[in-house]
């Protein structure tokens, strides 16, 4: 009889059997299934910390990766914008650290002589000046960044009021090596406000005029009674030197151009007597326009006139060997018009 009844159960329609199962589970087996649910919930709760930790780690990895991607994207967009403004006369390159020389401020570029790159060509990013090419091979080259001890460039404030030389701080000076530059040789009577934008002056035939170098942070003592020195926070962070542009290939006259507008900047109109000559202009003519931080770059108007920079020198800076020790520090922007440098 039990066997026959079992056969009847087997032959019942699926819906009826499902209803029977549901009924049994809701009645005599209800405590068992309640126990099962409790056990599953407890197991889920116990498993939660590990699962949550794993999810958190995965999320952190995604966020970190996304952060670097966003930074890279921002950097590339900025570079792309600069490239569009430049139009021509540059080569895009990827910069990597020179093995075992990363802290020296030298880095490798994946472009070389075959791409038209020559020693002395400026290297920039969308933020500003990085340095210059110092050693060129067929398909690669070595560039010297502003972190290098041999780096120096003639500089001026964006409004053309004050001139000087930007170089790496002397050893031990305020612990600024590798993180800041010093704008030296500014006449004593010219005081710069923190936040003033410093750009290349276009003197010396290496760097075209108007490439952002950094922002004045504050004054530091200068041994000379006739000059002032300022700490300059570089516009290009060393960690952001990944994608760069080498200026010059296919555009021989680039070094004589004023690139201030290419960075979306322009200078305040200044009177003729304040324009760079052998002596910096008087501070009484036009007050120094303090520049803002990189997040809000200054919008200045074009200059009335400017001094035509000299042509590019044949060998402006001694080329350091990649594998050998760095060459002795050359005079910045040497060999050309020393009389135009600030006293």
């Amino acid at each position: 009889m039990g066997v026959a009844l079992s056969l009847v159960l087997v032959l019942l329609p699926d819906a009826w059997r499902a209803a029977l199962v549901e009924g049994l589970r809701e009645t005599i087996l209800r405590p068992v299934f309640a126990l099962q649910r409790t056990g599953l919930e407890r197991r889920d709760r116990l498993a939660d910390p590990a699962a949550l930790r794993a999810e958190r780690d995965s999320l952190a990895a995604v966020v970190v990766a996304r952060g670097s991607l966003e930074a890279e994207n921002r950097q590339l967009r900025r570079l792309l914008g600069l490239a569009q403004r430049l139009g021509s006369g540059f080569v895009a390159a990827v910069a990597t650290n020179v093995p075992e020389r990363a802290t020296d401020g030298l880095f490798l570029l994946n472009v070389g002589r075959d791409d038209g790159v020559q020693p002395g060509m400026p290297v920039v990013t969308g933020a500003g000046l990085v340095g210059m090419v110092v050693n060129v091979e067929g398909r690669r080259s070595v560039a010297l960044g502003w972190m290098h001890r041999n780096f120096a460039a003639s500089a001026m404030t964006a409004d053309g009021q004050a001139y000087g030389i930007v170089r790496r701080p002397s050893s031990g000076l305020l612990g600024l090596e590798g993180t800041a530059l010093v704008l030296a040789g500014v006449p004593r009577h010219q005081s710069l406000r923190p936040g003033t934008l410093v750009v290349t002056a276009g003197r010396g035939g290496i760097y075209p005029r108007g490439i952002p170098i950094g922002w004045v942070e504050g004054e530091i003592p200068d041994p000379s009674p006739w000059q002032r020195s300022y700490v300059v926070r570089p516009a290009v962070h060393p960690g952001a030197i990944d994608y760069v542009l080498v200026l010059g290939p296919g555009r021989p006259g680039l070094v004589t151009e004023d690139l201030l507008a290419r960075w979306g900047l322009s200078a305040v109109p200044v009177s003729a007597d304040t324009m760079p000559t052998t002596l910096p202009a008087s501070s009484n003519s036009v007050p120094v326009q303090p520049a803002r931080r990189p997040s809000a770059q200054p919008r200045l108007t074009p200059p009335v006139r400017r001094v035509e920079p000299p042509s590019r020198p044949a060998a402006p800076v001694e080329v350091p060997n990649i594998v050998g020790p760095p060459a002795p520090a050359p005079r910045p922007d040497t060999g050309t018009r020393p009389d135009t440098l600030p006293p």
Binding site: S6, L9, V10, L11, R17, A18, V21, E22
Partner: peptide, 8 residues
Amino acid sequence: AELFGYSA
């Protein structure tokens, strides 16, 4: 539910 009855 589709196996209900077979055990019995």
